[in-house]
Design a protein around this nucleic acid. Structure first.
Length: 973
DNA sequence: GCAAGGTC
């Protein structure tokens, strides 16, 4: 009796042979150079075998045997309308280059009684198995087909798989067949249609192939989406209080301990300034809590293909495809395990010991490997993925003679493997919380107690940052308290690693094909690689943006550039696998849907052509620049502001919106301003409003821009529902913030009406819409220029006429209070958000500066506040001369404060007392120590002992002067 | 000249 075993690839055939044969087998060549046939006897018990002496031959194929294409009638591009390809017959045959593989199967099957399928244990494996079966049955109709199922190359499993071989799962094979047919039909229809359509209409593309694929287009879509986020980003300025103290640490070195504000940062500079004032006036800090806790830095999970590509791209700066190609090569050399795996957990019976042993010979990590064997070993963590076919990627032997990129990939995999067999790193964190004038600040330190896996895995960074001694209840005066300014950080373009992650998360491609899809959209010139220092970013070409934007303008139920369609296909395949649908049903249904999409695309293809033409010919670019500039103006920012704070703006930089945040499934009603890039945009109208509000001179550039924006989104012809129009020129919809723990819960906002993944990003608070009433009634007032308002908090604008009612941004009745603290503001009355500090919207307003009070001069309690709104004081004194571009420091237009030419430590022109004095703006120039004008508090002549030049630990005078906002050095006053 | 999924 002869059993023919067929694996999906030669390596598995060999592994199976090694196990089943007990180490004794004969080898024969096959007609194909890569494939060998292994013969041995095996003890296969009845009913399947005859016990001892059952003759086994193990061989393999090379993945799928068959390929499919249209028949002659439809194969030529101009032979038919692309639409016909939806229904044209598909012919399936063995690929030319696999004829020898087929021949080998034929030769072997002729003399076999049982065909045992050993392909990978997944859908594709099931389909490959069915191809093998069909080839073998052609020459041996009576051959019994069995399926051996195994999830790892482990002796026990392999023996069990042989003895308990069961049936092929035709449903899984059917599901794959459906996927193949759909991919071919849809790809061919749209590729031919687009290529032939664009080649004749766009001269630059006359020779170019414009392909569409259900994986490549969503991949391009991710790149374009992120590019648009970057383009439309408007930085937003915020303020935060920085507290630092110089202390001597245990080693006797003086170092500055920086404390972070619990509020992190506030976008309302007024509030930040006021809170800062309070700290500056009463800078005594009390240590509330000193807490030391153990902490762990987790060792990495076992390595999957996707993770290998991502970390290879990030850490080794290699293209994902190259990383995978090298891993493949090392696998073929027998140095690495099979590199295409989704599994991030090892089988219980996995033999770590011998694999670690092999690494003890290495000059770099050999000693570490030996320590693992000597007792430092700890079993790897278990991830959540298991493809039931392959273990995580690991080194299978030691290779000391590799060079270049091969060496680097091998080193990464090996270090990762050894790290995953190590203990987690351990440390102790110390948190110190302090309180200054009712504001809370904290700092933290870390002492690493056991580096463990970090010793062999230098890619992870974790470093000591011990804190000097602090005691609970201790009082001290910080060396420095500053009000600093930061800005939200521009999101980055996607890196290849980012894109791999997005595709994996959204089910686009498989671990083995993700890198190919990325390479393909680069090859098709939809995407370009852009090197910036050491990082390579992906930027869409004009063609890429033109295509995606063009298709986005067509009103598809399901966008061709989003991942939904592919996800839907996956879902339907699962239905077939589960027996809930049959192949024919999902084929018919999906093809009907794509026919509709095609008809619509064909009808509106002029839109795509126009879009591609615009982008290719520069007009699109110009529109883009215009759009970005418009949004920047809306947001009060100028082009120069973009660089301010910049990325990684220290403690003040807001986290960027990374690609990882691109969560298609996020709660639509979890409103509030969009994160990151969207945030600046969403808040922009509010800021514009605030600037207008303060500008008593009126007619400022901002006011004009602001009203233009309002008009842009006010659809006066539009219906009923408030008449807002989003950025895709669709009627916007009104929604309400639902999230219970949001400070904006219950608040209404306008947003794009499309499904979340397709939204244009338009966002506007209903109550900040200037003239749009809450009830949504449209009226003539909407077309009027925005009313001048005194305060930036537009929520109150809805209550402008309610003299008695001041409401905060959470729409709560504001708390009325009086400043009790000693200082220039003592006795002043104010309104503030009544919510607890965690939920507070940050609303604060001096009572005499409330709604209806048109008084300009009382702009704020301090010279800071005055300076921060220098444009307003200009307006007040100069009568409408203000622009949106005034420098905070000197008040002049044409530059921003961070590039202020008048900003020098000694220069009188900087925003300070001298300017305030000369401008007559006493309100912005008073010293908050003595209340007099003409000097800052840190050089207050009335400051008792120490006087004007009371030293600061850093020579504060010069530094304090150099920075417009950092006048408040606690010791300097 | 189309797709995506296996494999070498």
């Amino acid at each position: 009796m002869k059993v023919l075993c067929v694996a999906e690839k030669p390596s598995i055939a060999k592994s199976i042979t090694e196990i089943l044969s007990g180490g004794r087998w004969d080898t024969r060549n096959s007609p194909h150079p890569y494939i060998r046939n292994y013969d041995f006897d095996y003890n296969l018990p009845p009913p399947l075998g005859r016990g001892r002496g059952t003759s086994f031959t193990v061989t393999a194929v090379l993945g799928h045997l068959m390929s499919s294409d249209f028949g002659e009638d439809h194969r030529k591009w101009h032979s038919c309308d692309p639409f016909a390809l939806f229904d044209a017959p598909i012919l399936t045959s063995v690929s030319k280059d696999l004829k020898q593989v087929e021949q080998n199967l034929i030769n072997e099957a002729r003399h076999s009684e049982i065909l045992m399928i050993w392909t990978d244990c997944d859908r594709e494996g099931e389909h490959i198995g069915s191809e093998v079966a069909s080839v073998c049955r052609k020459v041996n109709r009576n051959i019994i087909v069995k399926r051996a199922r195994f999830s790892a190359i482990i002796a026990a499993q392999i023996h069990q798989a042989a003895r308990q071989a069961n049936e092929l799962d035709q449903r899984q094979a059917d599901a794959v067949e459906a996927r193949m047919a759909l991919d071919l039909r849809i790809g061919a229809v749209f590729t031919r249609f687009m290529t032939m359509g664009l080649q004749v209409r766009v001269p630059e593309l006359a020779e170019q192939l414009i392909s569409y694929g259900p994986c490549q287009f969503p991949t391009l879509g991710f790149v374009v989406d992120q590019y648009n986020r970057v383009q439309s980003f408007v930085p937003e300025i915020f303020g935060y209080i920085y507290v630092g103290i110089e202390r001597t640490d245990e080693e006797g070195e003086v170092r500055t301990v920086e404390f972070k504000w619990r509020r992190n940062h506030l976008f309302d500079m007024d509030i930040a300034a006021i809170l800062y004032e309070q700290c500056a006036i009463n800078p005594d800090a009390r240590v509330l809590k000193v807490e030391t806790k153990p902490t762990t830095k987790w060792k990495p999970l076992p390595l999957t293909t996707v993770e290998l590509q991502q970390s290879g791209s990030r850490l080794l700066r290699m293209a994902p495809k190259r990383v995978l190609d090298i891993a493949e090569k090392l696998y073929q050399k027998g140095i690495l395990s099979y590199p295409r795996t989704e599994t991030d957990q090892y089988d219980r019976a996995f033999d770590f010991n011998s694999l670690i042993q092999k690494q003890t010979y290495d000059t770099q990590w050999g000693q570490y490997a030996q320590r693992l064997l000597d007792g430092a070993y700890q079993g790897p963590r278990n991830g959540k993925k298991n493809d039931k076919a392959h273990p995580p990627i690991h080194p299978t032997s030691h290779a000391g003679n590799l060079e270049g990129d091969e060496r680097r990939v091998f080193e990464l995999v090996t270090r990762r493997f050894l790290a995953s067999c190590s203990k987690n790193a351990e440390g102790k964190t110390t948190t110190v919380e302090i309180n200054i004038a009712d504001e809370f600040f904290h700092t933290g330190g870390l002492v690493i107690t056991q580096r463990n896996y970090l010793e062999v895995y230098p890619y992870d960074k974790w470093s000591d940052s011990a804190l000097p001694d602090f005691q609970e209840g201790e009082m001290f005066t910080p060396t420095v308290i500053e009000l600093k300014e930061g800005s939200t950080s521009k999101p980055s373009l996607l890196t290849e690693a980012d894109l791999v992650g997005l595709m994996d998360k959204n089910g686009i491609g498989t671990d083995a094909t993700i890198a190919e899809h990325i390479a393909k959209i680069i090859e098709r010139q939809y995407v370009l690689e852009k090197q910036e220092q050491k990082i390579k970013y992906l930027v869409p070409s004009q063609l890429g943006v033109g295509l995606i934007e063009g298709y986005n303008k067509i009103d598809f139920d399901r966008s061709l550039s989003k991942p939904h369609l592919r996800r839907e296909t996956e879902h339907r395949m699962q239905l077939v696998c589960d027996g809930l649908k049959v192949k024919r049903e999902i084929l018919d249904q999906t093809i009907e849907e794509y026919k509709e999409v095609f008809i619509k695309a064909k009808r509106d293809f002029d839109i795509v052509i126009e879009s591609v033409n615009e982008y290719l010919h520069g007009r699109g670019e110009a529109q883009e620049a215009l759009r970005a500039a418009t949004q920047a103006r809306r947001g009060r920012g100028g082009a120069n502001r973009g660089g301010r704070g910049g990325r990684g703006g220290g403690a003040g930089a807001a986290p960027r919106r990374g690609a990882q945040d691109d969560d298609e499934d996020s709660d639509e009603d979890d409103a509030g301003p969009p994160r990151g890039g969207g945030r600046g945009r969403a808040r922009a109208p509010a800021r514009g409003t605030s600037t207008r509000g303060r500008g008593s001179g009126g007619g400022t550039a901002n006011a004009t821009t602001g009203s233009a924006r309002k008009r842009n989104h006010d659809n006066s012809n539009g219906p009923q529902d408030g008449g807002k129009t989003c950025d895709c020129d669709m009627p916007a919809v009104s929604r309400t913030v639902q999230k219970a723990d949001s400070p904006h819960v219950g608040r209404q906002f306008w947003t794009c009406s499309k499904p979340q993944a397709e939204q244009c990003g338009y966002f506007e608070w209903a109550d900040e819409g200037g003239n749009t009433s809450k009830s949504g009634t449209s009226g003539p007032s909407r077309r009027q220029p925005p009313a001048k308002r005194q305060r930036p908090i537009s929520r109150n604008d809805n209550h402008e006429n309610d003299d008695d009612e001041v409401r905060c941004k959470c729409d709560l009745e504001a708390r009325f209070g009086t400043v009790n603290k000693e200082g220039p503001n003592k006795g002043k009355q104010f309104w503030a958000c009544p919510n607890n500090p965690k939920a507070s919207c940050g609303f604060f307003q001096w009572a005499e500066d409330g709604p209806g009070s048109g008084s300009g001069p009382q702009a704020g309690p301090s010279n800071y506040a005055g300076r921060s709104y220098s444009r307003n004081s200009n307006n007040a004194s100069g009568g409408g001369g203000g622009t949106s571009g005034d420098c905070f420091k000197c008040g002049q237009a044409g530059h921003w404060s961070n590039a202020c030419p008048n900003d020098s430590a000694s220069g009188g022109a900087r925003g300070g007392p001298s300017r305030a004095g000369s401008g007559g703006g006493a309100q912005s120039g008073e010293c908050f120590r003595c209340g007099q004008i003409g000097h800052w508090s840190n050089s207050c002549p009335n400051d008792g002992p120490g006087g004007p030049s009371a030293p600061t630990a850093r020579g504060g005078k010069g530094r304090g002067g150099a920075r417009g906002r950092s006048r408040g050095r606690a010791r300097g006053r």
